[in-house]
């Protein structure tokens, strides 16, 4: 019990569309592996859900190195969806997470609509998956993500097809690398998405001027960390203003107050990503700090924050 000085505990449970979560603080896909690496550092029981690294139908080797480069208050990555593939995920990675009682959201990425549909169908049949997050925004692979995330019609078609393959709550993770994110958010929701994850990384690059070479072997990569927080907040706010959908907000969250900012902008829940690399306790710490923030603000239920921005 954290109840201090007789103050009533804060109800941290939230609903993200049909998905009921014990806490609004999740982890960002790709920043937490499949959970096991962080178990020694982070109190996983404090998290609303563990969002897995992207799973593809077949194993993927990923991109050559260098895959990461630190930038001002951020980092670039071009991992290239390295993962063991659906079969090994179901056999080796999912069961321990389910056995430990965690809420598991599986992020999926495919080359084409058929792969996404197969992935969704297989996860629907698996035991212990709480929701599917559809990755249509990976900037680091030539196929398998971003081309689905830039055109509302193409995105709508994909989401409709995946919707037909599963009864699980469907979250669509959108790319910020578009001129207007609202039509894409609308297309995903109209096609049957239950919630939106906003945002994936911003496409960027870094250059070694002396060698005249890109810092990443992939040349470009996805920018994450505190550097992108203002952009992420703006996009959450825009989508919330236009559509009022259930949103999982992310992009540079380092503290509980950062999380509160995303919720005020319209997010029902948030995800901690790059912060995990900086401080391996980040996700559980952000949850504790958000609870303290609510207590300090005399908020009884954390969901009261959602959309509470006064403009």
């Amino acid at each position: 019990m954290r109840g201090e000085a007789g103050l009533p505990p804060v109800d941290m449970s939230v609903k993200v569309g049909p998905l009921a979560l014990p806490s609004p603080v999740l982890v960002g896909s790709g920043t937490f592996g499949f959970g096991e690496e962080y178990a020694p550092y982070c109190d996983l029981a404090r998290l609303g859900a563990i969002v897995t690294k992207a799973v593809t139908l077949r194993p993927r080797e990923g991109n050559p190195g260098p895959r990461i480069w630190e930038t001002a208050a951020g980092m670039l990555n071009a991992i290239g969806l390295q993962n063991p593939g659906l079969e090994r995920f179901l056999a080796e990675k999912l069961p321990p997470l389910v056995a430990a009682g965690h809420v598991v959201i599986v992020n999926i990425a495919g080359h084409d609509v058929e792969e996404y549909v197969k992935l969704a169908g297989a996860l629907d049949a698996a035991k212990g998956v709480a929701a599917i997050e559809v990755n249509v925004s990976c900037p680091n692979v030539s196929r398998g993500g971003i081309e689905f995330g830039r055109d509302p019609a193409v995105l709508g078609e994909l989401v409709r097809a995946v919707r037909g393959a599963t009864r699980l709550p469907l979250i669509v993770k959108l790319s910020p690398n578009v001129s207007d994110i609202v039509p894409l958010a609308a297309a995903a929701m109209e096609a049957g998405a239950d919630a939106l994850s906003l945002i994936n990384t911003l496409l960027g690059m870094a250059i070694d001027a002396r060698q005249r070479r890109p810092r990443l072997a992939n040349v470009t990569g996805g920018l994450s960390g505190p550097a992108i927080k203002p952009v992420a907040l703006r996009m959450v706010w825009q989508v919330w203003q236009a559509l009022r959908p259930p949103i999982i907000g992310m992009g540079g969250i380092m503290t509980g107050e950062d999380a509160a900012e995303f919720m005020l902008a319209g997010a029902a829940a948030v995800a901690v990503g790059t912060a995990n690399f900086v401080d391996p306790t980040s996700a559980s710490r952000v949850a504790a700090e958000l609870e303290d923030f609510c207590r300090g603000q005399r908020i009884n239920h954390v969901s009261e924050l959602t959309g509470g921005l006064q403009v």
Partner: peptide, 8 residues
């Protein structure tokens, strides 16, 4: 980045 095998 992470140092623990998560970020690849």
């Amino acid at each position: 980045a992470c140092g623990v095998g998560a970020c690849l």
